[in-house]
């Protein structure tokens, strides 16, 4: 019984699976979509007492521009990230797992607000999650 339901479930799901023609960048909403997502993250950071202190000396407009560039490039958009490596930019801030989790929550909230599809959200998370090792406890 369990086996058949599972089989049916996986067949239905894989049957629906087609690689969309459009790039992740487009499915995130293109230029304005990525900008809104990044602004959503900035809003989340600004209102989060647990992590806002990390950004006390940060040049926010520059940080915003670099995050937009980075998300745009990683999602297959027409941009080139001009900032420094993740390891370099996050060393010395004592960023913990809780801080990282908090930022992921702000990213998810921002994508939900932008009505990004679950598939596109997961695709972006899949790209960003492995950066964990370059960002925390450095």
């Amino acid at each position: 019984m369990v086996k058949y339901v599972l089989l049916a479930l996986s067949l239905t799901l894989t049957a629906c699976q087609h690689k969309p023609e459009t790039s992740l960048y487009q499915r995130l909403g293109g230029e304005s979509g990525v900008e809104h997502i990044v602004d959503g993250i900035l809003y989340g950071i600004e209102h989060d007492q647990s992590i806002v202190h990390h950004f006390a000396d940060t040049d926010i407009p520059r940080f915003r521009r670099l995050l937009i560039e980075q998300f745009c490039e990683l999602s297959g958009g027409p941009c080139k990230y001009s900032g420094v490596s993740m390891q370099e930019s996050h060393t010395g801030f004592q960023i913990t797992q809780a801080h990282f989790d908090a930022l992921v929550n702000h990213l998810i909230t921002a994508m939900q607000q932008q009505k990004v599809s679950v598939e596109a959200q997961n695709e972006l998370l899949a790209i960003l999650a492995p950066m964990y090792k370059d960002v925390v406890y450095r």
Partner: peptide
């Protein structure tokens, strides 16, 4: 596993 089956985790 993110984005594993039909875009789901």
């Amino acid at each position: 596993f993110f984005d594993a089956i039909a875009g789901r985790n």
